[in-house]
Design a protein around this nucleic acid. Structure first.
Lengths: 103, 103
DNA sequence: CATATATATCGAAAAAAGTTGATATGAGGT
DNA sequence: ACCTCATATCAACTTTTTTCGATATATATG
């Protein structure tokens, strides 16, 4: 059983790693196959596979298999969800203002 | 010298940890002093200090000292920046579409 | 069916992040 | 100045994440 915070953290974990951000930057240009990502990225094949699993698991990236090639692209719905979540967790609730505290 | 991706990852790293998301949830209700966070959070004092440093470092949270107490709150500008960044890194660039690849 | 190629998965090693307890710093009060 | 309390920092340890090399799986091709 995962807490809400654990689940939310999973979405943002996709964006915590330098290499995954590089992948996203490449995918902004449109769908790319794994081999293309691999040669732009200076990491090994198994590491790329690992990162792509995290990215697709977060919903921000989607994958499509074509023969023996995997094609990756940014999933707009997943991205919208992440953006929504970010908005939500950083928006102060109206009304409630707790000034009192210690002392 | 940090790469752009490293700097961007730093913003999202603030959101990767369950405890930091819990802190944000508490701060949504308004400014809170460290002692309040501490008693809601089931982590030690030094761990809280560690997390707050990461949160403030990302720009999403700001701090205010009052005597010996630290007060934390969500920084709207930092949050807007994070939201903007997220939008940016997940928005596909118009025009460019690279279909060709391997085979 | 054998071979070649692309990607996924596994276990171990390396690196990074988080926690803990002890101590340091710094502000207030006596 | 001394003591107390709140927070920060440090070093050691634990846990999690990332990487690597080897191997497995799956698809296409001769």
């Amino acid at each position: 059983m995962k807490t809400v915070h654990e689940k939310n953290a999973q979405v943002f974990k996709a964006l915590c790693d330098e290499n995954r951000l590089r992948v996203l930057e490449l995918l902004r240009q449109g769908e790319k196959c794994a081999c293309e990502l691999l040669e732009s990225l200076d990491i090994g094949q198994s590491a790329l596979s690992y990162h792509m699993k995290i990215l697709t698991g977060s919903g921000i990236v989607e994958s499509r298999q074509e023969g023996k090639w995997m094609h990756y692209s940014i999933n707009q719905e997943g991205s919208r969800y992440a953006a929504l979540l970010l908005k939500e967790i950083t928006t102060t609730e109206g009304g409630k203002r707790t000034g009192s505290c210690c002392k």
